[in-house]
Design a protein around this nucleic acid. Structure first.
Lengths: 132, 132
DNA sequence: ATCGGTGCAAAGGTTTTGCAGGCGG
DNA sequence: CCGCCTGCAAAACCTTTGCACCGAT
């Protein structure tokens, strides 16, 4: 059994992800915590973000054509991504259908823990400016 | 307006993705088409896969801790991924709820084209072998 | 004192890109 | 022939990792 240590780095990284209104990339988290700890390294940020994601304290999200993003909001919710400018957020409210997990479990034999839905489309701005 | 050319490379790449039972990575697609075209380069495979994904002829899927995968099946369907071994497939049948797109459109002001759902969990094998 | 965590920098894996030549229309 | 496409290789990009030191317990 590994005993885990509390370090200032872990504290500031976790609170940065939790307080972020955007879904920050590792690099963005690094920029945020540099204010509190000018010497913290990007490698440490990655190591801790990965660790926290494994412990289930935060969530890691993969998006095409973008570095991975991290989300401190653990409640089940959906995400939306603009195919044009890459804007990525969860500022909308749609039901999370937990029964889908049970259903998928029966169909596949997997032990399902969760599902993630990402909507793709054009955000308001890009919708306007494209018009082709 | 750019005029597009038909090349043997495009033909074999597209048919490789469409016929693949797995969701191949670019490298796997490359391996498949090498049988038909021993000199085709990985760069060309990437260029064409990207191009076809933009044209909507195939789909590109990002998964954490794995190279991107490509799917020649354009019908709306879900995917499932084993958090342990990375096995990735769509061999199960769940309803695709198109009304969610309309709903999300109203809530966000986006012009939504589609949504993608990925289930995460443990596949049959990993479920057995982990048992902790 | 122990041993997990950190900073640094190098390496790793994936994907993109510049260039010169090739080939489809 | 024009100019898009290709092969090749280098570069870019994101992320992980080895190592020696640091610091929490």
């Amino acid at each position: 059994m590994i005993k885990e240590r509390n370090t200032k780095q872990k504290t500031v990284i976790l609170s940065a992800v939790r307080s972020a209104k955007i879904h920050p990339t590792a690099e963005q988290v690094h920029a945020m915590v540099l204010a509190d700890m000018p010497n913290i390294s990007l490698g440490t940020v990655y190591r801790n973000l990965n660790h926290m994601a494994e412990l289930g304290q935060i969530r890691r999200i993969s998006v095409t054509n973008s570095p991975d993003r991290f989300d401190g909001d653990l409640s089940p919710h959906h995400h939306i991504c603009c195919s044009e400018c890459g804007e990525f957020n969860d500022r909308f409210d749609l039901p999370y259908d937990k029964s889908l997990d049970t259903l998928a479990e029966k169909k596949t034999g997997y032990k399902i823990t969760r599902h993630e839905t990402v909507f793709y489309g054009l955000c308001k701005n890009c919708k306007k400016s494209i018009k082709n």
